[in-house]
């Protein structure tokens, strides 16, 4: 599987990663190599094999609907880069 530059750019945009041209080219080559290596799993016949999303046999792990204390608002915002009126602040979203 060889990736095109457009594919690399598309993935980077999905992941919201700003990459330099050099990085894009590097990732194109490296990801292609890794995916080529990964393609070996295509040899395996897994038609009748169920997927394993998690190894645990657990199910129905739930909690009762009870309220527990929230953080003080200072703690919520303590790590925030930009705050206004006790809210996180970002540049207005256009599109």
């Amino acid at each position: 599987m060889k990736l095109s530059l457009e594919q690399v750019e598309h993935i980077a945009e999905l992941a919201k990663l700003g990459l330099t041209d050099e990085e894009k080219e590097g990732y194109r080559a490296q990801l292609s190599a890794i995916l080529e290596y990964a393609d070996m799993i295509q040899q395996l016949d897994t038609e009748a094999i169920p997927p394993t999303a998690t190894v645990l046999p657990l199910r129905n792990v739930m909690r009762d609907d009870e309220v527990t204390p929230s953080l003080p608002v200072e703690d919520v915002l303590a790590n925030a880069p930009d705050v206004e009126d006790n809210c996180f602040r970002v540049k207005a979203i256009l599109g």
């Binding site: 309220v67 527990t68 929230s70 009126d85």
Partner: peptide, 22 residues
């Protein structure tokens, strides 16, 4: 009473910003 995945109160309508947060 509480949120979907944590114990914060889901009754937020009248709450000041970021006070029902963990």
């Amino acid at each position: 009473r509480s949120k979907m995945f944590c114990g914060c109160s889901a009754d937020y309508a009248a709450a000041p910003p970021n006070t029902h947060v963990c």
